[in-house]
């Protein structure tokens, strides 16, 4: 039990930055390029960790606190989410709510740190971030509530150990969670992580003024966030079908990588949505969750 928890934590902490590498390699492969190294995110984090820092003269202590709280909250979320078919470090009835709100805390501080610089670009990014998040939150919790109804339990760990994706309602929920995953991790069609214009960025522009270790914390925190949300989706998709730990672990990691490949394919296949359309897509995610719940309840 203990060992499984520690493996999961370690797995997340070590492998999280790999996801963005896989996404980028997939995109490169589709575009016919060679692409950056798989471990590029690790190199970036390492490079930033070794640097000094530049702070804006406008910024206060909150600017420095933002990345710290963001990283800590992402690690805390990692402790609540079960992975590879085994229990989370801490499981209790209603932990899905805590999970969503811990991520909310990280976002709150990131947004405040962005506003602390006084830059209108960062203000704009912050404004869009809270806008999208406010609409993604109901989709996330409604989706998880549907899974809770389907499995009859309120803790993520038990949910994931009893859920299985072969019921059509859960497929709907998975679609909703997938949309939330893309939104929360600032992927296309919500945000383009590779854009070069401040006006068009959302997450990237919020952290424009961070540098050095602070920026490394942000990058690592973002990777962890993608990992925890991904492991939620994979957990619902992939039931605990075997009692053999190594097999489960391998399947889990494989599924996570597959998820990253899927994201890469989506990014290659579509463009960013107009900002006007984003609320519609997020509303669609909520609608999918509600529809799934109605089907489960009926």
């Amino acid at each position: 039990m203990q060992a499984a928890v520690f493996t999961n934590l370690a797995l997340g902490l070590v492998l999280a930055p790999l996801l963005s590498g896989i996404i980028n390699r997939t995109k490169a492969a589709v575009a016919g390029r060679k692409g950056q190294p798989l471990l590029q995110a690790y190199f970036d984090i390492y490079k930033n960790l070794r640097k000094g820092a530049v702070y804006s003269t406008t910024a206060s202590w909150l600017f420095r606190a933002g990345p710290v709280v963001g990283l800590a909250a992402a690690v805390a979320a990692l402790c609540i989410v079960p992975a590879s078919g085994s229990a989370a470090a801490l499981a209790f009835a209603g932990d899905l709510v805590l999970f969503a709100y811990v991520l909310g805390l990280a976002r709150f501080f990131t947004v405040l740190a962005a506003l602390d610089t006084g830059s209108s670009f960062e203000g704009m990014g912050a404004s869009r971030e809270v806008f999208f998040a406010a609409l993604a939150e109901p989709a996330l919790l409604a989706g998880l509530a549907t899974v809770a109804r389907k499995t009859g339990t309120l803790s993520l760990t038990e949910m994931i150990s009893t859920a299985s994706a072969n019921s059509p309602e859960l497929v709907l929920v998975l679609a909703a969670l997938g949309i939330v995953f893309l939104c929360e991790n600032c992927r296309i069609p919500f945000d383009d992580p590779t854009t070069h214009l401040e006006l068009t960025m959302i997450h990237e522009v919020m952290v424009l003024d961070h540098s050095g270790p602070d920026f490394a914390f942000i990058q690592y925190g973002a990777a962890l966030k993608a990992w925890v949300l991904g492991s939620l989706i994979v957990g619902i998709l992939l039931p605990a079908f075997s009692s053999s730990r190594p097999l489960m672990l391998a399947c889990f990691v494989g599924a996570m990588f597959l998820l990253a490949v899927t994201v890469g394919l989506i990014e290659s296949g579509m463009a960013r949505l107009r900002l006007l359309r984003v609320p519609q897509l997020l509303a669609a995610a909520s609608a999918l969750s509600v529809f799934a719940f109605m089907l489960v309840v009926r």
């Binding site: 640097k51 000094g52 820092a53 530049v54 702070y55 804006s56 003269t57 406008t58 910024a59 610089t117 006084g118 830059s119 670009f121 960062e122 424009l208 003024d209 050095g212 270790p213």
Partner: peptide, 12 residues
């Protein structure tokens, strides 16, 4: 950050 260069500049 201890012992490294920590500078101040205007916001980007």
């Amino acid at each position: 950050l201890s012992g490294r260069r920590v500078e101040s500049a205007v916001t980007w």
